[in-house]
Nucleic acid binder design. Structure first.
Lengths: 334, 334
DNA sequence: GCGAAGTGTGCAAACGATTGTATTTTTGTA
DNA sequence: TACAAAAATACAATCGTTTGCACACTTCGC
């Protein structure tokens, strides 16, 4: 069964393909009558535009590429949903790639998207990304780019951010108010602004309350469950904190694993707060206090910024989405 | 900055674009010397194939489309990782779409993928899909198709399945052995084979143990957290089961919500087993017994089947991936 | 009733890669 | 050396759309 092309429609209607193309695009240079005729015939014959041919000719497509570290993170999957919410009705489609926190895979994903002539790229950087040439290339080639959450500031494009600073600040403040005395921080790679800000929010709160800022209490390797566990084990046998503010929930989970193993009671002897409010946070035992990010709203903002960029409206918007502290058992000290 | 095309390379090397094209494709009709020359020049000039032009000419691309209900389900995101594991090294790239359990979005996603001339489509059906014309269209058009997990049998294509029957059978058997007497089932849409099989495994186990098969104990609306809650509330005030085997973990979660609300102790008074082994299953309180599906392996099998289909090796493979019961607190009756 | 706008279509050349066929060059052999 | 066979490359059409330009026809003012 052959696909129907505009040439087929043109033949049937005894007009030229150019007219059909214009008619379908709603060009006012073709008369209303012809436009209706074409539309009807196209429907009748089951015409589907060949977006490949269109993209080749126009040099770009209505497909937007999106690169995220992992799609199975609560936050990212919600951002994706938010992006689809705006993009799909606007006639764009979305291609999703995972970098898996690997710089190489991130680069490859971008190359693939470029080879596919995507109309724009949305990205949240991998934790391992320390070089940003691949982003600069996009800017140089004039390809609409929007960064979100894990962004690099030096790249000139729209950026949609979480209020990491305030979330971390509130979380730490809350730990202090709950009576913990030696509050440490398990953070992510400091090359990412998002994690730097969480660290800054943490230290601001510590300073503000007149507590000693002890760099021995700050760890910034990775924020997986495993690294959280390892960090906690290490800290417990050396600097002995009595609370940890973690830059991620999986990391907090690992910390709690370690505390359980050492028979240290949460929250009585030790307080823990995470970040991201993963679904498991309210289900685990003890339930985990966490900083909530509004992924869906972020997604809608990201998509809007992308559309604006594509339409040439403007290119360098920076928006901050508020975060919110959710207090649960893991830091409920009395 | 203009993109480099094969014409540019051809000009530099004083050969024709055809030779360059063949050289890059590794065609033996062009001499080894020329091939090396072309490869070197291409690298030097930073050539990147325009897959759009290639897809237009060849009528298909090396992009594979994948449609899943939601990407943020543990199982699906692992299948996706497995698929990428095989597809990417083999030179294919993956486009992921979410149907969000909506039939309309599923159809639209397929249309979009078709319009993008994907080389094949991988799909796990939405719960609401009761009509399968969109899949038949793919078969008719000879587009490689692989269904997994939530499949429709009447469509002729490769299918990779979980051993739903056995998983459900083991789960139910386990509930019986643990001493529960009135074991109900909260299942998903029976139009999906996966859920029918879970039901069948359940009833096989019930019959085998000589328990009464009571259709009043079987619910098959949906398997969201909310529907699990509602079903449990309904069941508790009427047929009064003392255990429920749920076709999904979110659903089991809803059931436990209801039990907590009614102050019914799990597992002492009531046993619950879920399906899918979502990450939260081992973290919640009580920890949830569940049937584990090996999503990653399923993904690799799915991808292999797709590649075979594309290469014309064969088209109708059916594989079953084993499932495994993980017993945790929610059904640990002494 | 004549030129000037204005309106609706057609023509043809792109976009970049692929591929069947034709042509040239090289190789081997008598 | 000549000539056929084999190897390497060139030519040109094609995929389906888009779009600048040209052309025909209508409409209108003077």
């Amino acid at each position: 069964m052959k696909r129907v092309t505009i040439n087929d429609i043109a033949k049937e209607l005894k007009v030229t393909p150019s007219t059909v193309s214009r008619a379908l695009a709603g060009n006012t240079r073709v008369s209303v009558k012809t436009r209706e005729l074409v539309a009807a015939k196209a429907k009748e014959m089951g015409y589907q535009q060949n977006v490949i041919a269109s993209a080749l000719r126009k040099g770009k497509s209505d497909t937007i590429g999106m690169v995220v570290p992992r799609i199975n993170r609560h936050f990212f999957s919600h951002v994706i949903s938010g992006v689809e919410e705006i993009l799909n009705p606007a006639g764009y489609s979305l291609v999703i790639c995972q970098s898996g926190e690997s710089f190489l895979k991130e680069q490859k994903a971008i190359d693939m998207l470029l080879a596919n002539q995507v109309g724009g790229i949305i990205i949240s950087l991998s934790e391992k990304t320390k070089c940003f040439d691949h982003l600069q290339k996009l800017v140089d080639r004039n390809i609409p780019l929007v960064q979100f959450d894990r962004v690099h500031n030096e790249i000139s494009c729209s950026k949609i951010l979480n209020d990491n600073f305030n979330g971390a600040y509130l979380a730490t403040k809350h730990l202090i108010k709950s009576g913990y005395k030696r509050i440490g921080h398990v953070g992510g790679s400091q090359s990412l602004k998002a994690y730097r800000e969480r660290y800054l929010g943490y230290s601001k709160a510590i300073e503000e309350e007149g507590l000693p800022v002890d760099s021995a209490l700050v760890y910034t390797d990775a924020i997986t469950r495993e690294s959280g566990y390892n960090t906690a084990i290490k800290a417990l046998s050396s600097v002995k904190p009595d609370a940890l503010f973690c830059a991620g929930d999986y990391c907090a989970l690992g910390v709690i694993d370690a505390l359980k193993e050492k028979n240290i009671s949460v929250p009585d002897e030790f307080g823990v707060v995470g970040f991201a409010n993963e679904p498991f946070a309210e289900l685990m035992a003890p339930t985990l206090s966490s900083v909530e990010q509004n992924g869906f709203e972020m997604g809608t903002r990201v998509a809007s910024a992308m559309i604006k960029d594509i339409e040439g409206k403007y290119k360098e918007e920076v928006e901050v989405i508020p975060t919110r502290l959710i207090v649960r058992e893991s830091s409920w000290n009395k």
